[in-house]
Amino acid sequence: MTRRVLVTGGASGLGAALAARYAARGDRVLVGDLAGTADVPAGASYQRLDITSEADWVAALERVRSEFGGLDVLVNNAGIAAGGRIDRLGADHWRRVLDVNVLGAVTGCRTFVPLFKEQGSGHLVNVASAAGLVHPPAMTSYDAGKAAVVALSESLRWELGPWGVDVSVVCPTFFRTNLAASLRGDDPLMDQVATRLIERSKLGADEIADRVVSAVDAKRFLVLPDRNARIAYWSKRLARPLYDRQMRGMGARIHRAELDGGAA
């Protein structure tokens, strides 16, 4: 069955990999992004979409209605990387992270839920992070934002289920992508740590995208697409002393690095 899919942030990273997977199997795909048409995967169409702009979301909805006649899957993928120690992050940092990572997804859901209700079908896919389920130190803004996306998704799961609308929340750990490019240097030490974790990951966006598409097809709610995400999630739930010890160890390493002025 051909599906109609909108992927935000679909011109790079995981978004591009997801858009390419859907397009390759014959789905009608609209990529919402700020990058322009040059980076859009083959077989997909482009829509300029700043996820912090209500007007851009409305324009995307109008195009979906006119060209697709509806929508089957909305992938709220666009987001930014963030990290840093609490005393290094100012109010502008927090506003930027929450505006993009939380309110961007919220606005997408607000915009398309009426269409899904009207259809009596649809699937919201919110890309969060393992950081929305487990909360390492020195990632407060990112942890808080992604935890909010997890909570949003669970609430919408129960709210929209009676309307025939499915919800999935995707929570990977670090994988190879260009996400580190969105770091703004609010805390250079922690930016270095995040960049190193992304670059050293054994998994790339293509592998994660394959697993996400399969999970969404199966209408799975919580999508943990990599082994590290599953270990982190289940250790917190079932082996809390071990989880706490790991988090304390991370906090201690950051403390030592700050005192030494070196890398964590």
Rank of each mutant, 00 (worst) to 15 (best):
Y243I: 04
R184A: 09
G145D: 11
K202D: 15
E154D: 15
D226V: 02
G164Y: 12
L224C: 10
L224W: 04
V165R: 11
I208W: 04
V149Q: 05
A151W: 01
A147F: 12
A144S: 15
A147T: 13
A232K: 04
V216H: 10
Y142F: 15
W163I: 02
E159V: 12
G145T: 14
D210C: 08
E199F: 00
R245I: 00
V150T: 08
A180P: 00
P162S: 04
D226P: 04
R245D: 07
F175E: 07
M190V: 14
R184K: 14
S182H: 08
A151G: 13
V167R: 09
A218G: 07
A215K: 09
A144I: 14
A194C: 06
S155A: 15
I208T: 07
A239V: 13
F174Q: 09
D166G: 15
S182M: 07
V213Q: 13
V170H: 01
D191P: 03
L222Y: 03
S235P: 01
N228D: 13
L156W: 14
R176H: 02
S214V: 13
N178H: 07
V213K: 12
L222I: 01
D186Q: 11
R237T: 01
A151T: 14
V193S: 02
A181D: 14
F174P: 03
L152G: 02
Q192H: 06
V150H: 08
E159F: 12
Q192C: 00
A239H: 11
S214E: 15
K219I: 00
Y233R: 01
S168E: 07
R220G: 01
G164D: 06
W234G: 03
I231W: 13
A151L: 08
R245F: 05
V150E: 04
L156A: 12
S155N: 14
L224Y: 05
L203I: 10
L242Y: 11
A205V: 07
A229N: 04
E199Y: 01
S201E: 05
V216A: 10
N178P: 03
V167W: 05
A229P: 02
A194K: 03
L203R: 08
R184Y: 00
L152P: 03
L197V: 02
A209K: 09
P188W: 01
R211Q: 09
A215G: 10
R227W: 15
G145F: 10
C171G: 09
D210T: 10
L222E: 02
S182Y: 07
A181T: 02
Y233M: 00
V167I: 13
I231M: 13
N228S: 12
L179R: 01
R227Y: 06
G164L: 10
R211Y: 08
D244E: 14
S141N: 15
S182W: 06
S168Q: 08
A144N: 11
V212E: 11
F221C: 05
C171D: 05
R220C: 00
S168P: 04
S141A: 15
T173C: 05
E199G: 03
